[in-house]
Structures are given as C-alpha cells and as structure tokens.
Design a protein around this nucleic acid. Structure first.
Lengths: 195, 195
DNA sequence: TACAGTTTCCTAGGAGTATTAGGCAAAGGG
DNA sequence: CCCTTTGCCTAATACTCCTAGGAAACTGTA
C-alpha cells in the first residue's frame, strides 16, 4: 500500500487550490480526499475537521494576498500607492476567487491578531493613509472605508452584482480616482451642516 | 393526521426568519422541516430544492430591504438622502443578518432584472446620485462605489473584520461623511496625472 | 540488520442532509 | 357524497462529516 505523502501543509494547499477551481464553499473533505486518491478518514490525521481546514485555507489566502500586495505597494506613496494597492487587491481576488472567499470567513480575533499576513496588510493600509496626512481616529475610519470599498467591489463583482453593461474594470479605475479624492478631502471634524 | 398548512410562501418566509436566527448558511431543508414538525420530503411539494429555497429567501430579503430603504429616503435629497439610505441599509443588515446574507448569493441576471425590489433599490440609488449632479457614465461608477462601500462595510462588520477598538457606529457616520465628500468632488474626467 | 515506536493510511460504521418515487388520506368542488 | 386535487407520509439512495480501531509503511536505534 503506497502512501500518498500527505502533510498538513500539502492538504491545506490543495484545499486552497481546489477552492480557486470549484469555489470555496464546494471544498469538502470528500472532494479533497478524492483528489489525493485516499479515503476521507485519512485526512483527519492532518486536519482536525472541516472548519479547521477552512481556517487553514483562510490563513494561506491571507499570506498569499499579503505577498502580492506588499511588494506592489513598496516604494510608492500617495495616489501611486493607492492605485498599486487597489490593483493588487482586485487582481488577487480575480485570480484566486476561492482563496479570496476563504478570507471572508469569521476567524477568531486572536488568530487574526497573531497572523503576520493580516497585520502586514493592515499596516500597509495604515502607511498608505498616513501618506494622505491622516492620523487617529480618522486613520481607522479611513482604513475601514477603504477596505469596505475594495472588499465590497470585488465581492459584488464576484457574485455578478453589477448588471449594468458598463465595463467593470473601467468602473474600478474610476472608483480608485474617487477614493483618492475622498482621502485628499477627508472630513476630519464631524461635518456641521451649515448653521 | 392533521396538516401543517404549508404553502410556498410560508415555507420561504420561515426560511428567512430562520436565517436571521441561526445564519443563512445553516438554513437546511431538515432544520426547516423540524421547525414545521413535518418530514423533510414534505417540503419538496412547496420548494423545488435547497437552491430554490435560498433563491426565494434572497427575493424576500430584497423585498424587505426595498421596503425599508424606500420610505426612509423618500422626500429627502442630497446628503440628507445619503444619510437616510446609509442608515436604513446598515440597520437592515444588523437587524436581519440572515436575510442580508441571502442577498449575497449569485442570482440569475434575469431574475434580478425582473425583480421590482432590486430595481427599486437601484433606482433609489440612481436618484440619490443624480442629486449630486452625476450623469452617465459617472452615475454607474458612483452607484457601484457606493454600493461597494456600503456592502463591504456591513459585510466586514458582520464577520468581525473590524478588530480595532474604535466604535463601529462612529466609523460608519464618518464613512458617510467621507462618501458625501467624494460624491461632491466626483472626478468626472479620468485624472490626468500632472503632465 | 533487527526491532520498537511512530506515522500514515485503511476498514467499518454512525449520524445528518438532499433528493426522488410512490402512496394514503384530508380538503374541497361538483 | 363522490372524485379530484393536494398535503404529507414512508421508503430508499446518495453524499457528506466524523470517530474508532487496525495494519502497513516509514524512522531511528541498538
């Protein structure tokens, strides 16, 4: 009986690749086992359960995303950095839909806090916005808006939420322009409506 | 043998309520049948299959959301309308997490095109942005950014994506302010980087 | 090299879920 | 009151997750 040579890492990596192929929510222990040519039960030596597997895929996804975003933003500043960040972000989501979807599952806050990948992306985001002259608490608010806009856009794009015939890539470019304007004119004080 | 009095509508509505209680992805034919005190197979007289049920919940959700957003924006304009839209949107997502999640599934484009609820929300969004003086193709781009920001924000909030201690509600207010600024300064022409 | 321990994968099996086919009995119209 | 329609049932298949316990393949060591 020849061994398949499974390890926790190889199983998790295969799950991530499978997610990109067939969709994150269709990644099942059974499908994964079939891919390796082993029985379902065999995977439980390497992965605690399905949730554990999904968590590992999420961590791989965060890692891969950080690896793509980091270098592409490095050495840039201002709008240049914003554009680089945005393109790296969306390109990753389009190229790795399964991994990207994995990043949307709920994780233990501690896990996120300890994850260098997650922290690296947030730090990049922070640095980017400091370049716009933002400081706390505006910084946190701006990070949240930026992440929201990016995440929302690629999520809606992924589920086909943009029915209008206008090219989505073009809208994305324009969205980045608009967000740049928003960051440049960030309303630091609660807006007092003309009185 | 007394009947449970099931109909397609009642089943779908119960599914929507159950989704708000236990989460959209935990809504199962079995769980729903248990709730009604009937056998799983009985539900298949009213619903084609699980996907069909999920689609029905998504349509209910769109309807409910439109019913909440429409009246709250009606009669308002400018930033006032934007704030009303934003609050109605987030409040709905917080009050009905299961329904909101249902709205994120991929639907047949025709179904969305024919859904009055979906169209009503998009039309409200359109009207709101026309109030900012936007016209095509900027209008479509702006609608996409706005939807992205709103959807992204409540999605990230729902999965606990905002780890920072800053109050999320406050960030939301500030996000609306910032988006208002963005819409007022919408960059109509592709930004020509100083040359 | 032989042996002991560990790891990898297996068989077997239970529980939950989705779905179909076919049947009986309750509701309701003529 | 019969007869059609409809609502819910039983029965069965398939797929999934997961546990328990066993055997075969690797590992290191005497």
């Amino acid at each position: 009986m020849a061994r398949a040579g499974l390890t926790t890492d190889r199983v998790a990596l295969a799950a991530a690749d499978l997610a990109d192929e067939i969709g994150f929510d269709k990644v099942t222990i059974s499908a994964l086992a079939r891919g390796f040519g082993v029985k379902d039960a065999s995977l439980y030596s390497h992965v605690r359960n399905l949730q554990d597997l999904r968590t590992k895929v999420a961590m791989i996804a965060a890692q891969d995303m950080a690896d793509r975003i980091g270098p592409s933003v490095a050495g840039r500043a201002g709008k240049d950095a914003l554009v680089a960040f945005a393109h790296a972000y969306r390109d990753f989501a389009l190229a790795h839909p399964g991994r990207y979807a994995a990043g949307q599952i709920q994780l233990e806050p501690e896990l996120v806090a300890q994850s260098q990948a997650h922290q690296r992306v947030l730090a990049t985001c922070d640095a980017l916005l400091r370049g716009y002259g933002l400081a706390e608490p505006d910084l946190t608010d701006a990070v949240r808006v930026l992440r929201s806009a990016f995440h929302g856009f690629v999520s809606l794009e992924a589920i086909g939420g943009f029915g209008h015939p206008r090219d989505v890539g073009t809208s994305w470019e324009r969205a980045i322009d608009a967000l740049h304007v928003m960051l440049e004119h960030w309303p630091s004080a609660p807006s007092t409506p003309s009185m």
